[in-house]
Write a protein that binds this DNA or RNA. Sequence first.
DNA 1: CGGAATCCATAACGATACTG
DNA 2: CAGTATCGTTATGGATTCCG
Lengths: 132, 132
Amino acid sequence: MSKNASTQEIETPGSEAELDRLVTQIIGRVADKWTMYLIDILHEEGPSRFGELGRHCEGISQKMLTQTLRAMEREGLVHREVYPVVPPKVVYSLTDLGSGLGAAFCGVWKWAAENRTRIEAARRDYSRRHGE
Amino acid sequence: MSKNASTQEIETPGSEAELDRLVTQIIGRVADKWTMYLIDILHEEGPSRFGELGRHCEGISQKMLTQTLRAMEREGLVHREVYPVVPPKVVYSLTDLGSGLGAAFCGVWKWAAENRTRIEAARRDYSRRHGE
DNA sequence: CGGAATCCATAACGATACTG
DNA sequence: CAGTATCGTTATGGATTCCG
């Protein structure tokens, strides 16, 4: 019983390598552009309707919006509430899990904001040194 | 001169909406599965050769490895050091910028590790309620 | 309004072969 | 070893149409 210093694991059959693989897999599904955008939007705007999300999420197609929201629902990041009215109304909101991820992502947003000039400088530098 | 409360902006012509777009764009380029994996690997293993990275980065093809590393170099996340020996030796290491992103993304890894059981539960839940 | 379904273009990716 | 180049496939994403 050398490991498991974490928060709430009771039954953990796999090896730590396997755990690693699992966590990596989760990151792989979640570290996606649209997911990050949507979590951010839901974080700022609060519970939002499908159309609102589409409008706030610059450049996303309605197909990707649906698709991404479904995936997020599957991972337990968002809750989908359907109001049986006409015209239809569907409101998406972050679950606790989603909020947690949003909070975690916050660091990445801050990093991007704080370092954007350096990133752009690096890019200019690169294209100068390479093929222009 | 109402804004610019940030860390180090001297010349900022765009509006805050534009700044938003810029930051979002950066996230879009950086929030990618392989980039995150590689930053994590470089963070844990330290400076590594091309082949080592490939071996540590489960499931990546050599093509994607090259491609992702080039992109990361362009964004200023990694430094590429070529040793003119035979057989060739190329060592990749995180720049300050890359380390910063790694640190920022750390929160997400922790989130994934701490909530993995909940995520899997959510997934089981979803497939039970939907098409199995 | 909030999708699902269809069609289509192209970008992403993997496998393979080749090179300095 | 660390790539580049090419090819073929699959996945991604947009546009459009239709439905409850």
